[in-house]
Amino acid sequence: MLSQEKIICHRLLDPRYGLYQLVLRGKIAATAQPGQFVHLKVGATTDPLLRRPLSIARIDRARGEITLFYRVVGRGTALLTDVKEQESLNVLGPLGKGFTKPAEGELLLVAGGIGIFPLFSLLEAVDRSRVKVKVMWGGENRQFLESAGLPILRELGVEYEAATLDGSLGQKGLVTALLESSLHRTRTSQEMHHSAVAGAGPKDSVLQVAACGPRGMLKAVTEICCRQGVPVEVCLEERMACGVGACLGCVCTVKTATGHKRRRVCAEGPVFDGREVVWDEG
C-alpha cells in the first residue's frame, strides 16, 4: 500500500501541453487493476501538503512497472516534473475500485482529453481475442492526441475514432457526437439482426461503455448510453485529501433504492456506474 517506487523513466512528451510520462518500478504493479490510481508525495516539504492522485495508465506485471501520464495543471504537478530517473517516489497505492473487465462482447472506450490515460489500462487488460474493443477519443487537435497517446493506440493495434475541436484529426467536434452516431448504428443493425434471427437476445447486453474525461462529457456520455440502453462505467475526478476513504473529502452523489447517498470517489470509485451518478448535484 505504501511503497517507495523507483523512477525508471520520466520524460516530457509535449512541452506545449505539459504532458509527461512517468514509469515506476516497485510493489504496486503486482496488484494494480485497470482504473485504479496512485497517490504521490510530491516534494519533501509541507507545501504543497497533500499527495497528488494520478490514474494508472499501464500495468506491466512481468517487469513490475506501472506507467503514469500527467499534464501539468498546478503546483503539485509542476513540482512533480522535477523528479529524476533513478530516484524514488513515495507512493500510496494501488487505490480505489477500477473498471469492470468484460470477458466477452464489445467494449467501447470513450475518452475526453487526458481522460484517455486510465482507459489505456483497461484496454490492455481485456482479452481482445474475445472482446471487440474500440476507442473513441476527443481532444483539442491532432498534436494533443499524438502526444497524449495515439502512438500507444497504434502500437496496440486497436480500432479508434478521433474527434478534434479544430477538425485537424478525425471528426470535427466532440467525442459525444461520435458516440451517439456509433451507438445509433449499432442498435439499428442489431434490431435488423434481431428481426432476422428471433430470440438472439444475449447479443443485446454485451456492448458496454467505459468513459473518462471532464464531468460534462461524462454526463453526456451517460445520457447517450442510457437512451440506447447500454451499460456505462465512468471514471470520476474529485479534489482528494487522504485517498483511502478516511476524510470524506472527495465524495460524489449516487441514486440508491433509499434515496441519494454519498460515495467516496477514492474508495467506492473512482469508477462508478454512470446511471447511478447524480450529475447535477455537487
Binding site: E238, A241, H260
Partner: peptide
C-alpha cells in the same frame, strides 16, 4: 447526515481547508 456538497477540500500553504459538514 449527507454532509456538504463538493468541493469539500482546498489546499492552502502547509494546510488544508475542509468543509465535509459532518457526513
Amino acid at each position: 447526515r449527507i454532509g456538504n456538497p463538493v468541493p469539500r477540500i482546498a489546499e492552502t500553504p502547509s494546510g488544508i481547508l475542509n468543509a465535509v459538514g459532518l457526513e
